[in-house]
Simulated assay, not measured.
Amino acid sequence: MGGKMQREVSRAVWTWTWTFCLIVLSAGGAWSARGEVRHRLAERKLCADEECSHPISMARALTDYTGPDCRFINIRQGQIVYIYGKLKGKGRNFWQGTVQGDYFGEQSTTLGFFPKSIVKEIQYLGTELVEMPTVDWDFYC
């Protein structure tokens, strides 16, 4: 009898989990509080690898920057920025990266865009870049 009850509980948990996943996926954008895809800044980008998971370079912020919307990161003068992508074409003035927060974690690590003009690259971490298309996820809030 214990085995039968355990199977019924497992089936109920599985059914609930599957239903929950369907609801989340059909809600389109339930992965964040805002949950929306903004227009693409560019169709192509350069990355250090095909997953854009390794930084291309490190840069130091020359000035403060406050992003206009959720696709962008805020940067303070002097902060180190890890650059993961460089947009091409119409968005070529924007790079994608993360800001190194203070030692005690004052700023959470968030990937976002910023104007390349506000940073100076100080160290290149890769030699050959891969050109690839941007995807909706690049511009998701």
Results as ranks from 00 to 15, higher is better:
Y124K: 14
G29Y: 11
F104D: 07
F114Q: 03
I80N: 06
W95Q: 10
Q96H: 04
G28R: 15
C47G: 09
K116L: 02
I23F: 14
A33G: 12
T109L: 06
Q96M: 09
Y124C: 10
G67K: 14
G29C: 05
P68D: 06
A61S: 09
C21L: 08
G35C: 05
L87W: 10
Y103D: 11
Q77D: 05
R92Q: 11
R71H: 01
L25R: 07
H39M: 04
F113W: 15
F113P: 05
P115V: 07
I122L: 14
I83H: 09
L41D: 02
I80G: 10
V24P: 07
G85E: 01
A48I: 14
G28A: 12
T98F: 00
G97D: 14
V99R: 05
V119Y: 04
L22E: 12
R92M: 08
Y84Q: 00
S26Y: 09
T19M: 13
T98V: 03
M58L: 15
N74Y: 06
E106W: 07
D69H: 11
W95K: 08
F104E: 08
I73T: 03
Y65I: 04
R44D: 15
S108I: 13
S117F: 00
T110K: 08
V135L: 07
L46Q: 00
R71Q: 09
E106I: 02
E43F: 03
S32W: 06
F72E: 03
Q100C: 09
L25H: 08
E43G: 00
G126K: 12
D136S: 02
S57R: 10
